[in-house]
Design a protein around this nucleic acid. Structure first.
Length: 448
RNA sequence: GUGAGCGUAGCUCAGCUGGUGGUAGCACCGGGUUGUGGCCUCGGAGGUCGUGGGUUCAAGUCCCAUCGCUCACCCCA
């Protein structure tokens, strides 16, 4: 058996990469419009960074991190999420001194050692977005609306749920009320819930058992226990979201898996991915910067989108994504003399910006035509012995099957110009939507 | 970490109660067309049946182990 990729690690093959580029290009464009700058941080960090930010007691830190000792014996970890690294860089470089409000995003691979399943891999990719230095509820709404717009522009419909988790001032009291409630219901709820009542009471309300849910209908919910500051923040966030006409439902049972969240939390949900319902999620983390050694009281909010999940959804929702861009021209040379003429010509055309291919091993014309067809060449330039003798080359339009002779005189540059002109003329007269050279988005845009 | 399902050609899959691996489809290469793609047609190449053991005269098929994949639980993007 030949060597395979690691469990949960996937190759993104040439035929699928177009969808990725499309999503990434759309995301970058949205980020630009909203005033975000990209930041690229290392994939490997000190283990302590994640332990301190995500939380020692979370599943991620307890059992899912790719941690190992490097050659010095220091414990290092491949990042399981993006926020911690971005905040570390923000603090390390004092970015708040450049602009009081920093809007940052990063796109890249994350690593968690979990059992893979649909929409969940050990190496996966996220768009991770953070805003540091502002705690206004309108920012919460703006960020959520931005994520909504991004999903919309990619072509996905999801549902949005939001909640508030309160702050260190109001959450403990709520937690206590909840624990008391659960203790009273102990006999009536499932074993899982009983166990979690102690380990992570906030999570209990998330239970999927309908029997448990029946009991929890009267459970105390966090949004009824918010302090005045948090309650006002939540109300204003919702009002601002309404101004932007982003539809959302309040889910008081929604809990996040990372310890650092405060106040606003949100999830973008789909029912089309099996067990993995969240395509994106995030929330406010007002204490985190300080906790990591940054400025006191520095607020923050962010979210992450799971790119694999977006790709899955897009693939199953929109079948006709254009794969592999068509090439502009295939040069078919017959015989050594023609090949020697064609070779530098191809190079010249490429320098001029055309996407040009050529067979290098002197195959038959039929074989070369086949190759041209497979690579979806819009035109083929046939340079054979007969044409060479006549001082001509034949330009074939592969969609209309029309052929025209071009004079093959003087410098390659002259032919190059003739060719480009001829191609441009024909293209203008009859272009095909999918075969036209794609814009800055590169390959794989959905067909208009 | 727990549970279930599945491993036969590059891909999708047939293969019955054990009896020679399939004219299988798609893809690939070549011919028909001595210089013109798609369609058609003819041919070709491609396999340690995941791996290792066992039962048997005989195992792709039955049994055991192991590895891998998939889905689900847990949790998460």
């Amino acid at each position: 058996m030949s060597i395979q990729a690691l469990k949960g690690f996937k190759d993104i093959l040439p035929e699928e990469v177009g969808v990725w580029q499309y999503i990434e290009a759309t995301a970058r464009d949205i980020m630009r419009r909203f005033g975000f700058s990209e930041i690229r941080t290392p994939i490997l960090e000190k283990t302590e960074l994640f332990a301190r930010s995500i939380g020692e007691a979370t599943d991620i830190v307890e059992k899912e991190m790719y941690s190992f000792a490097d050659r010095n014996g220091d414990s290092v970890t491949m990042r399981p999420e993006g926020t911690a690294s971005v905040l570390r860089a923000f603090i390390e470089h004092g970015l708040q001194t450049r602009l009081p409000v920093q809007r940052l995003y990063t796109i890249g691979p994350m690593f968690r050692h979990e059992r893979p399943q649909k929409g969940r891999l050990r190496q996966f990719h996220q768009l991770s977005v953070e805003v540091l230095g502002l705690d206004h509820p309108r920012l919460d709404a703006e960020l959520i609306a931005m994520a909504w717009l991004l999903l919309e522009e990619i072509g996905l419909t999801t549902s949005l749920q939001i909640n508030s988790l309160g702050c260190p001032a109001c959450r403990p009291a709520y937690k206590e009320a909840l624990v008391d409630f659960l203790a009273a219901k102990k006999e009536l709820i499932c074993e899982d819930c009983q166990r979690r009542s102690l380990s992570n009471p906030l999570r209990v309300l998330d239970c999927k058992s309908s029997h448990c849910q029946e009991q929890y209908r009267v459970a105390p919910v966090i949004i009824d226990h918010l302090c005045s500051g948090c309650a006002e923040h939540f109300a204003k966030t919702r009002a601002s979201l309404a101004l932007l006409e982003v539809p959302c439902t309040v889910n008081p049972f929604m809990v996040r898996g990372l310890d650092y969240y405060t106040r606003t939390t949100f999830e973008f949900i789909t029912d089309a991915l099996g067990a993995q319902s969240a395509v994106g999620a995030g929330g406010r983390y007002d204490g985190l910067v300080e906790q990591l050694g940054g400025a006191k009281g520095m607020p923050g909010i962010g979210f992450a989108l799971g790119l694999e999940r977006l790709v899955l959804l897009l693939n199953q929702q929109n079948e006709d994504v254009c794969l592999n861009a068509a090439i502009d021209l295939f040069v078919a040379a017959l015989g050594e003399e023609a090949a020697v003429r064609a070779f530098p010509l191809v190079h010249l055309l490429r320098r001029q910006g055309l996407q040009v291919a050529m067979d290098l091993e002197g195959k038959s014309l039929k074989s070369q035509m086949k190759q041209a067809d497979r690579t979806k060449a819009r035109f083929v330039l046939i340079l054979g012995e007969e044409e060479l003798a006549r001082g001509e080359a034949v330009l074939r339009d592969m969609t209309s099957k029309e052929q025209q002779s071009l004079p093959l005189v003087g410098e390659p540059k002259a032919l190059c110009i003739t060719l480009i002109t001829a191609i441009a003329q024909r293209k203008n007269s009859k272009g095909t939507a999918c075969r036209a050279p794609t814009s800055h988005l590169g390959h794989g845009m959905p067909c208009p």
